[in-house]
Write a protein that binds this DNA or RNA. Structure first.
Lengths: 203, 203
DNA sequence: CGAGTCAGCAAACAGTTGTTTACTGAATGA
DNA sequence: TCATTCAGTAAACAACTGTTTGCTGACTCG
């Protein structure tokens, strides 16, 4: 890649980073092109060399947000571990991800039901792919013996919803004690679901 | 209440209704005072006779949104019914509420993690009160024999989170078939949690 | 080297915004 | 009845907004 392209990529990244930084404290629909370019140290017109819209920038941020998560959870689910240990590890994973990628997680939570349709659609699509992956991993586990595909999928959705809720709770945690409490709650809830799953047949 | 006060209340209501109508398709942070007054058929300056801020209007909408829900769920939980029937009734209740109060529910989902701090705080506080109520109702049930208060509270939070997730899913339902699918999923998930609760002690 | 490409800029465009001001006229209550 | 209150108004304010325009100057490549 030539110097030209590299410089362009750098500017593009600066715009994305500026956007993400600003979006930590406000909505995408409340964001302005001028605001982003100002934060990125660029003239307003320059924005249009990279994105048609702020919505387009938003969709790129969605993709970046969820790309890392995919690998993360895929790895966690692939591990063959005892159920209790897996739960602890999963909650720790979520906590770590929120700590390291706080801005991305906040952005996702904000815009999941936000006012910008293309961004909302992108998030919904990614979360659905997510549930697919989880469902596939669950189906491969011995505990899913005798479960219909629909029921496995339902279980996967419950897990994904719970994961999102937990991540959001971590986001708003007040301090270490609060984080510990949230982690404990999440673990207990997962354990409850796990117990229900084990005794599913007996009703 | 005199004619004067009545007219003022009417204008205030017009502003709230206009805001709610506009918020169905956009964020609170993207809303403007002029936009609301235009929709309400009022001059911009008139807004300030009723609210200091758009955030203030938003907080009022939050209170209105959750006021109806409180009575609704309180009634549902008070009923002494068989577990399976209670689940069906609860899901139906949520579906009905989303149908009748669509704009309010959408607003809550949007602003729960939106960019306006006071509104976010108001929603969080109301949802916490909600969880308290649910926890109290759960604690009174015979199935909670031997459960610690913390565990009951954790269960209540799980139910509230699930209720919110279900309501949001109903919001985006494409048609009757989609709604039926969402309802079936929600019921099964609730049943799973219920099974887990029943077999909690045995691990 | 020299012609061409193109990322980023400054300036201008016509709108929009939030908020304050002084006002009007209907409801109020002594 | 008549002075007072006050919800709603029209107008003005400066400060923004998104987007287009023509331009410049550094990179690209034959």
């Amino acid at each position: 890649m030539g110097v030209r392209q590299a410089q362009k990529q750098q500017s593009r990244r600066a715009l994305l980073d500026a956007g993400l930084r600003l979006l930590e404290h406000q909505n995408l629909s409340g964001l302005g092109v001028r605001e982003v370019t100002r934060e990125a140290g660029m003239s307003p017109a320059g924005f249009y060399r990279h994105f048609r819209d702020l919505a387009e920038l938003g969709v790129v941020l969605v993709e970046e947000s969820l790309a890392s998560l995919h690998g993360l959870v895929r790895g966690a689910l692939a591990e063959q571990a005892e159920a209790g240990e897996l739960i602890d590890r999963t909650v720790e994973l979520i906590a770590g991800h929120v700590r390291e990628r706080r801005a991305y997680v906040r952005f996702l939570a904000r815009e999941r039901h936000g006012g910008v349709q293309p961004v909302r659609a992108a998030i919904a699509a990614e979360l659905a792919r997510f549930a697919d992956e989880v469902a596939e991993a669950l189906g491969a586990q011995p505990e899913s013996e005798g479960w219909s595909a629909a029921d496995v999928r339902m279980l996967a959705e419950l897990y994904v919803d719970h994961m999102v809720a937990t991540a959001v709770a971590f986001l708003d945690a007040a301090g270490p004690a609060d984080r510990a409490r949230i982690a404990a709650t999440a673990r207990t809830q997962l354990r409850l679901i796990s117990v229900g799953r084990r005794h599913w047949r007996e009703g």
